[in-house]
Amino acid sequence: MSGERLDPEWVRGWCEGTSAGLAALMSSFLETHGYPPGENAVVLATDESHGATDALVDLTPIPSDLTTLYWVVCEISMPDVEHGYFVHPASTVAEHLREHGSVQIDDEPPGIVFASDGGGHLFAAAGSGRIWRSATASWFDDFEVAAESVQDFLEQLGRRAAGQT
């Protein structure tokens, strides 16, 4: 892992590219799959979502790259990319953190669940910066490395969206 921090400008560029990829996917989705697509979108941050991010940071220390992501992106919804991917809004992350707590991942500092897939598997950002995926649809099961960083996680999502067109 490089140790470099996530660049907000890179995230903005990723948002533009991934949104374009999703638009291309949605333009032929009905014809290709025979049913209409769900709501597939990269939703940019707003003043309200910035407040939710600040509240999440006040609730618990979160990895700085996750803070950077939430300063640019409110949420990501990709129900029609593979089996679905969802980056939850900071307000939902805070609600889940209050309800379930953080997740313990191997020898990592506790992780914060911030995303899920259509199968109910959870994605957690750990203090190391790595992103972990639950082995089952559970907050309390084993987790395995899914990405080396938030940027790597986003790059994977972007490739998955582009690979379906």
Rank of each mutant, 00 (worst) to 15 (best):
S2Q: 13
W10R: 15
V11P: 10
W14C: 09
C15M: 14
G17M: 09
T18E: 01
A20H: 08
G21I: 04
A24K: 01
L25P: 03
M26P: 03
M26Q: 11
S27P: 03
S28Y: 01
F29I: 05
T32Q: 03
H33A: 09
Y35G: 08
P36S: 13
G38M: 02
G38H: 07
E39L: 12
V42A: 02
L44W: 08
A45R: 09
T46Y: 09
D47F: 08
E48G: 05
S49T: 00
T53C: 12
T53L: 14
D54N: 15
A55N: 09
L59F: 14
P63W: 01
L66I: 01
L66P: 00
T67Y: 13
T68N: 06
W71A: 15
C74N: 06
I76L: 09
S77P: 00
P79L: 07
D80T: 08
D80F: 00
V81P: 00
H83M: 07
Y85S: 00
F86W: 11
S91M: 04
S91Y: 01
T92S: 06
H96S: 12
L97Y: 13
R98W: 11
E99P: 00
E99L: 13
V103T: 11
V103P: 06
Q104H: 15
Q104C: 14
D106M: 15
D107T: 15
F114L: 09
F114G: 00
A115N: 02
S116C: 14
D117R: 01
G120T: 03
G127K: 13
I131K: 06
I131C: 07
W132A: 10
W132T: 09
A135G: 07
A135C: 13
A135D: 09
S138Q: 11
F140Q: 15
D141M: 10
F143Y: 13
V145S: 06
V145L: 11
A146V: 04
A146M: 03
A146K: 11
A147H: 10
Q151L: 11
L154Y: 02
L157H: 04
L157G: 06
R160I: 01
R160N: 09
A161L: 08
